[in-house]
Amino acid sequence: MITDAFVHNVFFWLKNPADTATFVEGVKGLANIKHLRDVHVGVPVPSDKPIIESSYHVSLLTIFNSVEDHDLYQVDPIHEDFLANYVKQYVERVMVTDSVDA
């Protein structure tokens, strides 16, 4: 169980799904940001269950020790480079959820 964490989930819908592999490589580069506790980059599992959201192309789950670490991640040059060189070029839609321990 993950405890004492700030969890940041990002779901990306790409302009062109054929760019998924290139975009995934860009997302994986975010793992080099020192403020992260853990990171997972994924793609949806095909499902015919209506409750499962699988229309996105790439997901990013990041875990931080604190909201302060998350805030430092947001302004890290690696993250800013990702926004400028991947998100602006490849992404049509983004959904973000943040959560802390209940």
Rank of each mutant, 00 (worst) to 15 (best):
M1G: 15
I2D: 12
T3A: 10
T3L: 11
D4A: 13
H8K: 07
V10I: 15
F11A: 05
F11E: 06
K15S: 03
N16I: 01
P17T: 03
P17M: 05
A18C: 08
T20C: 09
T22A: 15
F23L: 13
F23C: 12
K28M: 10
G29H: 01
G29I: 00
L30R: 04
A31V: 02
I33F: 05
K34T: 15
K34W: 13
K34R: 15
K34S: 15
H35Y: 12
R37E: 13
R37F: 08
D38C: 01
D38Q: 10
V39E: 02
V39S: 06
H40V: 12
H40A: 11
V41N: 02
S47N: 07
S47E: 07
K49P: 00
P50Y: 01
I51P: 00
E53V: 10
E53A: 06
E53R: 11
S54Y: 02
S54N: 15
S55P: 01
H57S: 13
L61G: 10
L61K: 13
T62C: 05
F64E: 08
E68K: 13
D69V: 14
D71C: 09
Y73E: 08
V75K: 09
V75R: 07
D76G: 01
P77K: 04
P77N: 06
F82G: 10
F82S: 08
F82Q: 07
A84Q: 07
N85E: 08
V87K: 00
K88C: 00
Q89I: 09
V91C: 08
R93M: 00
R93F: 02
M95E: 07
V96P: 00
T97Q: 08
D98S: 02
S99W: 06
S99V: 02
S99I: 02
D101K: 15
